[in-house]
Design a protein around this nucleic acid. Sequence first.
DNA 1: TGGCATGTTGGCGA
DNA 2: CTCGCCAACATGCC
Length: 247
Amino acid sequence: MHLQRRLAGKKLQRLQVLKAAKPAVSPARLKKALEGRKLTKVYREGKELRLAFDNGHILGLHMMLRGKLEWMEGEKPPAYGLLLLDFEGGQRLLLQDYQRKARIELDPEGSEVPDALSKAANTAFWKKLLQTKATIKNLLLDQQAVRGIGSAYADEILYQARISPFSVSNKIPPDKVKALATAVKKVLKNAIQHIRKAAPDIIGGELRDFLVVHNARKKKSPGGKAIKVRSTGGRKTYYTQEQQLYT
DNA sequence: TGGCATGTTGGCGA
DNA sequence: CTCGCCAACATGCC
């Protein structure tokens, strides 16, 4: 990861909680725990970005819907700046979010819920997880069930596995559950690979042009079928008739 | 122009 | 109890 390459081994010289932040942790506690410490590792946990420091403390950042990281330029932080981290070498990492919803945590609790790309999320795990009446897309989005999958990737995964997003989880046959388990890894790994190649320096913002069904501009799936859209739970679901509905 | 967007939470109703 | 749906957040993008 790019942040890891740029920042690992560097000392955090200054931490500023900015005006727009609604901190769950007091700025004083954050400063005390992290200022002057060396950043050892940057990694992802579910939908959180984690920065680990050499004294064992971990800074957890959740971007929510619109949070964004960028390299700070100029002197004055923007109106929606939440957190500014000054590293040795002059690199200034800025977290901003106009919705002010991005979360800043100190030493986030470990979770028993497996990340979608973890070893624990194997076919047996998915078979057990799908023993519920919840519709499959809602289940994929449930961070208490499995971590790291959002609306767009849920649509991509279900297309890849040829399962309708409106299928009842416990009606999906075993061979299809296996296909789902495979699709989860494939879609997420492909996305990481694609983004790495297309935008190796990206630290914020998003890249979605490669999504094959969850894309308002696309009319047809790779199989040439019309992409249908349905609003559900305040969000849009993109799917095609190539996906089998189990009810 | 305006519809739409990698998310979470809590409350309500079926 | 389980599940689905809704609003709130209020800017940037094509």
